[in-house]
Design a protein around this nucleic acid. Structure first.
Length: 777
DNA sequence: TTAGGATTCG
């Protein structure tokens, strides 16, 4: 982006200059000196008409005065601008504006000057790698003057596009293919956009210059396209690059700096554009799903496609149609991973580092059309590899299966490799994390996971080992009272309650068999248990509350800031989001608690992915209030938090401001519940275990928040992985289809207690201070 | 021109 138009607010540019650049005083300019990391700054005092040189090249001349050194004898200099840059500058430079150039060439004039101008002039051009920054002052008063300088662009909503037109538009990236080499002569990038009119537009963007395609890194990024051609294809509108196409790309995260990633040499970017981006971000937050948090190598699952942000540490040519990339992200893949055999001489990368990372780096084999791009990558660069296929496989000479990572040929689902700049926030975060990884510790502690150690188990399969272990040791362990001796079940059942025992028994069966049915909500105050409301209940309450429009009198108070909009759907719906402030400022979304009025289940669910906490509310005449307590009063991460209807006495929402005023608000559900007068219901597993030993059998209840399964009951309903883990645990405790003799032993603590029935007391048993053994599952 | 979103030969 060799020419940038920047906006100045209170004397400061919104976008700082690159930090490596240092200001050079005009006095110190000399021909032949190294000015690589220097820039000159001054006010444009004179500009000449744009002309053409004899070779047809554009030429533009200006005089720049160093306003910091007006008293100096030599305080201005001629600047000659060549080529495309001359044309661009001529369009936007006005007298009185601040001009900055870096990457200039200093040319000494044959004779000394006597007009206070420097005896050198500066030459700048795109070919010479020059960059020009023009600081513009806010153009509120001089409207007529502005018109010629920054043309007013008109942006077409995606539902108003017409065949055969060339338009400017904004959109939120819903899908994209990172630039790849097309079968023609250019790079190609496919981008599908959506905007608040809820219409999608898929664009095919071509360019011979990789740099002039939009720099999209993730779904949810926001783009501004200028001069994109609209055509009809298969009954739908389609965008395609046309002459003069230019784009800006912005991070779509609410609160992130509004700094354009640009592919054009000149662009305008003013308050109005900034406002548009901020509005689109808010719309996107509840209307675009982004696939949760990024997958790290430590979370990969077999049979899955995922995007990986990583650093390249090694690469090697494998054969004509495949190429190996060795990458890491600082985490360890929980499965053994394959190593693609390549000759040492073919492997490019730092040998010592590759050795240190042998258990952390993974091999990704890329195929076909991705090979050319992969070959060109530099070791050490940061990449996002899109849609890597995780494949479980097992070689003939291995007893355990391993994970393979493939980037198959083609570009389906955005499959491809994107190079991330060091300025990318995800790269910054990754770099910090990689630097914190202590390589020596990891090698010592985790080397048992590597393939070569696994193979020392010989021919015994994992499963057999596991079963052998289970028959000898208990699959559960006691967390306390280890000194107590074991009591036979017959003795337990023949004794009076209440008492506590250590027992050793087998789990013959358990209820419920459908594990999700074991999750209930428990009030620790009134001891009641209730079912977890299903999504229909919540949906119903939301529908009901959406019929009450947000009350504008409640917008923007001292402790929250409000944003509202009306949906475009047939039955218009008003939505208000209230962002709770901290120190009178908005926080990063991931730290922010928001309250929402009028949202649907889907919208609220999406907002929970972006924000720390979401509280659904509705307006009354004079305050916001919580919805009916059959709905969750708070959503945080994957968890819906409910309050007890009997024990809660809701207090004013304003009480949240006391948490917001804390130095670092943690927004803990318990604390939120407390200030809102809500008695928080706890998620709990309730199960009935039928335990047997050689002497007797008894039913014992498990009442567990987290300790027994080491899985939070609150998360099981929304996490497939945890559900699977729990099912696997139960399969270990009580393997289906096995005889009693083959079942593993459980060591448990149980306590007996009396429950008074209509006619007589009944004795019940409850498991406590027991947990699943560490090596089970 | 190229691609026109909608996973996989390896």
């Amino acid at each position: 982006m060799p020419v940038q138009l920047l906006k100045i607010i209170e004397g400061q540019s919104e976008i700082p200059l690159p930090s490596h650049l240092q200001k050079e005083n005009l006095k110190h300019l000399q021909e032949g000196c190294d000015h690589t990391n220097k820039y000159i700054q001054g006010v444009v005092t004179l500009s000449y008409p744009l002309t053409k040189l004899r070779d047809g090249k554009d030429f533009f001349k200006i005089v720049v005065q160093d306003s910091d050194n007006l008293g100096s004898q030599i305080n201005s200099i001629n600047v000659f601008i060549y080529g495309k840059m001359a044309e661009d500058c001529a369009k936007i430079i006005r007298q009185g504006e601040t001009f900055i150039a870096a990457g200039f060439k200093v040319i000494k004039l044959p004779a000394a000057r006597e007009d206070g101008r420097h005896d050198c002039h500066l030459e700048v051009s795109e070919e010479a790698g020059s960059v020009i920054y023009i600081y513009t002052k806010p153009r509120t008063t001089a409207a007529s003057e502005t018109a010629s300088v920054s043309p007013k662009y008109v942006y077409t909503p995606l539902n108003r596009l017409k065949d055969g037109t060339v338009v400017n538009l904004y959109g939120i990236v819903k899908f994209f293919k990172p630039p790849y080499i097309s079968k023609g002569t250019d790079y190609c990038s496919i981008v599908t956009l959506v905007d608040p009119s809820n219409v999608k537009l898929t664009c095919s963007l071509f360019s011979g210059n990789l740099d002039s395609l939009p720099k999209i890194y993730k779904v949810g990024d926001i783009v501004r396209f200028h001069r994109i051609k609209i055509r009809e294809y298969n009954g739908q509108m389609q965008g395609i690059t046309s002459g003069g196409f230019a784009s800006l790309t912005f991070d779509g995260t609410i609160g992130a700096p509004v700094v354009p990633r640009t592919s054009s040499r000149v662009y305008t970017f003013m308050d109005e554009e900034q406002k548009t981006i901020e509005e689109l971000r808010i719309w996107a937050a509840s209307n675009i799903s982004i696939s949760g948090s990024a997958t790290k190598l430590s979370d990969v699952q077999p049979m899955l496609f995922f995007d990986l942000t990583c650093q390249l540490v090694g690469k090697a040519k494998v054969d004509g149609s495949s190429f190996l990339l060795k990458v890491w992200d600082g985490t360890k893949c929980p499965y053994p991973t394959w190593k693609v055999p390549v000759e040492a001489k073919d492997l490019e990368g730092e040998k010592v580092l590759l050795h240190q990372l042998r258990n952390l780096a993974v091999d990704i084999l890329v195929y076909d059309n991705h090979v050319q791009l992969a070959e060109s990558l530099k070791i050490g660069s940061f990449l996002r590899i899109y849609s890597i296929h995780v494949k479980q496989a097992s070689a003939d000479n291995e007893d355990v299966s391993h994970m393979e990572f493939h980037l198959h040929g083609g570009t389906c689902y955005g499959r491809g490799i994107g190079l991330l700049p060091e300025s990318n926030p995800d790269v910054k975060e990754l770099k910090e994390f990689l630097e914190s990884v202590n390589l020596t510790d990891r090698q010592n502690m985790e080397s048992t996971c590597s393939m070569d150690i696994d193979s020392t188990f010989g021919n015994v399969t994992d499963l057999e080992l596991h079963l052998q272990r289970c028959q000898q040791l208990s699959v559960t362990v006691l967390t306390d009272h280890q000194d107590l001796s074991t009591t036979e079940l017959k003795t337990v059942t023949n004794s009076t309650a209440p008492q506590q025992y250590r027992i050793r028994a087998k789990l013959r069966t358990y209820k419920p068999q459908k594990l999700h049915q074991s999750v209930k909500l428990h009030c620790s105050k009134c001891k009641s248990l209730q079912e977890v409301p299903d999504r229909d209940d919540f949906d119903f309450i939301l529908h009901g509350s959406a019929s009450t429009a947000p009350n504008p009198e409640l917008y923007n108070t001292s402790w929250y800031e409000s944003v509202t909009w009306t949906t475009q759907e047939q039955k218009q719906r008003e939505i208000a989001i209230h962002f709770v402030k901290h120190d009178e400022m908005l926080q990063h979304p991931e730290d922010t608690l928001i309250m929402i009025e009028g949202g649907t289940l889907k919208e609220i669910w999406k907002l929970t992915k972006r924000f720390k906490c979401v509280i659904p509310v509705r307006s009354t005449e004079d305050d916001l209030e919580l919805l009916d307590l059959s709905a969750p009063f708070l959503l945080k991460g994957n968890v819906k938090y409910y309050g007890c209807k009997q024990c809660s006495t809701p207090k004013p929402m304003k009480n949240l401001s006391s948490i917001a005023a804390e130095q670092q608000p943690s927004w803990e559900p318990t604390e939120i519940a407390q200030v809102l007068g809500i008695e928080l219901l706890q998620y709990v597993f309730i199960m009935k275990f039928t335990l047997v030993d050689e002497t007797a059998s008894l039913n014992a209840y498990l009442f567990d928040y987290e300790k027994f399964f080491q899985i939070p009951a609150s998360e099981i309903l929304t996490n497939n992985f945890l559900q699977e883990k729990m099912q696997m645990t139960m399969n270990t405790l009580c393997p289906p289809g096995r005889k009693l003799g083959e079942l593993p032993w459980l060591e448990c603590f149980i306590k007996s207690y009396n429950v008074r029935g209509a006619m007589e007391n009944q004795v019940y048993y409850q498991i406590f201070d027991t947990t699943i053994a560490e090596d089970v599952v």
